[in-house]
């Protein structure tokens, strides 16, 4: 009962303090908002970059050509082998006739050339998607070991370069997000500490009149939470409206049809939740640190 009363009073006092120290509260909220907007932008960019690289990675496939005189039974046997391989996500069988049709449709010269030939010179094949593109080479080598496979092509050289580039991009975006979150944590925590600093006489009087440490801490910690929460509202509005407008403006794609933006829902809701959590946790932590300093006797 006493604890409930303590928390009830803490929440009530923290709201009163936010209003009573309006200008300082506004400064803390503004600082939190600005830094959280930067965090929101970095989160949106990094997640989109990650999504784009994932899409591009999905385009990296192995084309395994089956030897010329392989029977249908042997092809089925090969299918079974592929299904059992760990790194293979999915595959599609493409017959030599399908290849021929595709090539004829793609170019008039090829069409004419293929018309002159009595026999289809192309091979049946499997187009294979892997689970982890980092092991593209190993998977390709493993497929090639099979007696019915004549070659396994995955764009050697270019694929490795692309994978390395994706890895670098992913790491850089993660570092940027972490750095921005840390900078935000530092700025919000310090701004809230400054608001508490300006009220150190209040803490001093509370101590002198016999308030216990927990009674002193609770309203200030709630105040930090309120400031952090209020500071996250503007960034959330900016995120929701800004991202939806950008998404609609570009029709969900940037530069080419292949580069797709992440769909706004539920993505922006997750980003919003992250912003609220960052604001509240850092606000509380900043307040706690500041009050603790003035409670040391």
């Amino acid at each position: 009962m006493k604890i409930i009363r303590l928390f009830g009073r803490g929440i009530r006092d923290s709201f009163k303090s936010v209003l009573r120290n309006f200008s300082l509260s506004t400064a803390a909220i503004a600082c939190s908002s600005i830094t959280l907007i930067l965090v929101a932008i970095s989160l949106i960019l990094s997640y989109n970059v990650k999504n784009i690289t994932k899409d591009l990675e999905h385009e990296l496939t192995i084309v395994a050509y089956v030897k010329k005189d392989t029977t249908e039974e042997q092809i089925n046997e090969l299918k079974n082998i592929l299904e059992k391989m760990k790194n293979i996500d999915s595959y599609t069988f493409k017959s030599k006739d399908e290849w021929k049709l595709e090539m004829k449709n793609s170019s008039e010269t090829l069409n004419t050339t293929l018309e002159y030939l009595d026999e289809n010179p192309l091979l049946d094949s499997f187009i294979i998607n892997v689970k982890d593109v980092k092991h593209l080479k190993e998977t390709s080598t493993e497929i090639l070991k099979n007696d019915f496979v004549s070659s396994a092509d995955y764009g050697e050289g270019m694929a490795e370069n692309l994978i390395a580039a994706f890895e670098v991009i992913e790491k850089v975006t993660i570092i940027i997000v972490i750095a921005l979150v840390l900078v935000t944590a530092f700025l919000i925590s310090n701004t809230i500490r400054l608001t508490i600093f300006s009220r150190r006489s209040e803490i001093e009087i509370m101590r002198l009149v016999g308030a216990s440490n927990i009674t002193i801490k609770i309203p200030f910690i709630f105040e930090g939470l309120i400031l952090g929460f209020l500071g996250s509202i503007i960034p959330i509005i900016v995120t929701i409206y800004g991202y939806v407008i950008i998404y609609d403006h570009f029709n969900g794609h940037i530069f080419t049809q292949f580069i797709q933006l992440v769909k706004p829902f539920n993505f922006i809701l997750y980003v919003s939740m992250i912003l609220v959590v960052i604001g509240c946790v850092i606000g509380m932590f900043g307040s706690y640190r500041a009050v603790r300093k003035y409670l040391k006797i």
Partner: peptide
């Protein structure tokens, strides 16, 4: 168990006379 009176009063400027005195009791719950 004790009360303290200071040379520099240590009153909270944003609180009224009533609130300053009540603050001592509110602070102890």
């Amino acid at each position: 168990k004790l009360g303290i009176v200071f040379q520099d009063f240590k009153l909270l400027p944003k609180l009224t006379v009533y609130e300053n005195v009540a603050f001592a009791l509110e602070s102890i719950g």
